[in-house]
Design a protein around this nucleic acid. Structure first.
Lengths: 216, 216
DNA sequence: GTATTAAATGACTTTCAAGTCATTTATTTT
DNA sequence: AAAATAAATGACTTGAAAGTCATTTAATAC
């Protein structure tokens, strides 16, 4: 009944939808932050995108910074959890797992709005230290530990040569983060840039540099 | 005489220094753009840093965008020319040259204000497409061709294995650009981050991945 | 069907920074 | 030394966006 009402009552200037508003606002915020960055995103735009007024936005979130933290918590952290889980149950070589992870990154992060968050945070960290600290603690450190553990495991298994696992993890993650940054900065000017080719070439070089000579 | 005057005449509210103003303003702009990025830099701040009023700034430059292009032309392009020249006269292996280039990058770019320009441009490209296009054409493409040519030479000499030189160049440059980005974004939160260790580990992996098995 | 509640609005206030220009004053010319 | 020139100023205009709040109105309770 109320379903029918909602689509037929054109007389309504707006409807009460307390349940759905937060999610709709967060989706709009993700889109705008990803497209324009933190400072350049106007809350009026987020509100418009979410189909509400700016006042409503302040009804559900304390302001711009709170909105961003909510976006990270809602959309980014679950992705990390998913990667951790995938690794936990993986049976093959670390080399193969890294291919899988990078493929997942390309399809589910890079080519979606999520990659805009990586780029945004790194682009504006210097101007928003509180956000930067939040992101570093919750996203960067957690991801780095995850990758460093993988590399340690690969060394223990005799798959990778011994090295400083912390810095090797930074190298691997640099590839991913840089691809996100490029995607949202100069890639539009880089006419025959092929993301897949870029990631594959980079991973290929990385693995040749990490594998023991008898592996491969 | 005029030297003495300039230091003793305290009564002057300001002095006419048409010759020196542009360079002083550019140095101030480099500093501020590097510290805070393009959008967040206020021209009042640049003026203050340069020891002039905002009006004077507009006397010498057409506005914020013109100021940035002048900064790139004045400070960034000469650095690329210097690298091209260094390579031209280099006698050793490409591997050794790459070490040298990365060392030069670390000392003369990364740890100076110049690295802030790399970071700034990539951080804000999406919001300033005109600047981004200028930077891509004049800085990125030129640098990429430079590195791709080096790699091609290394392959021709039998030092590197055959590969897609364009994408291998992107990989190598990613390392450098990412280090600049990190320096000006999350490095301040990354407590035991060691730039030298990061660059060396990354270059080591890159070269092991590129060298022919009999080289090294 | 009337009263009550609270979701939603959007005009308003405030703050901030880009860009302008009439005025001031250092320097040069005569 | 007076007149002319142009370097430099800073108060002002303009516009934009964050955050507020008195009012409106959809939904619910009685």
């Amino acid at each position: 009944m109320s379903e029918l009402d909602s689509s037929t009552r054109e007389s309504c200037r707006w409807r009460r939808r307390k349940q759905d508003r937060p999610a709709e606002i967060l989706a709009a915020a993700l889109k705008m932050f990803s497209m324009k960055g933190f400072a350049a995103t106007k809350l009026d735009e987020v509100a418009k995108e979410a189909g509400v007024s700016k006042g409503t936005l302040y009804l559900y979130f304390d302001g711009k910074e709170a909105l961003f933290k909510a976006v990270v918590t809602e959309f980014v952290l679950p992705q990390i959890a998913k990667a951790e889980e995938q690794a936990e149950h993986y049976k093959g070589s670390i080399k193969d797992l890294m291919f899988k992870l990078l493929e997942h990154w390309r399809i589910n992060i890079l080519q979606t709005e999520l990659s805009g968050i990586s780029k945004m945070m790194i682009a504006e960290a210097a101007n928003f230290p509180d956000l930067a600290n939040f992101y570093f603690e919750n996203v960067i450190l957690r991801t780095r530990h995850f990758v460093a553990n993988l590399i340690e495991l690969a060394i223990a298994r005799g798959e990778f040569r011994a090295c400083n696992t912390d810095y090797a993890a930074r190298s691997f993650l640099s590839i991913m983060v840089f691809s996100a940054i490029w995607q949202h900065s100069l890639a539009p000017f880089d006419e025959d840039y092929d993301i897949k080719e870029y990631l594959n070439t980079h991973l290929d070089i990385f693995l040749r540099g990490m594998l023991k000579d008898d592996q491969g």
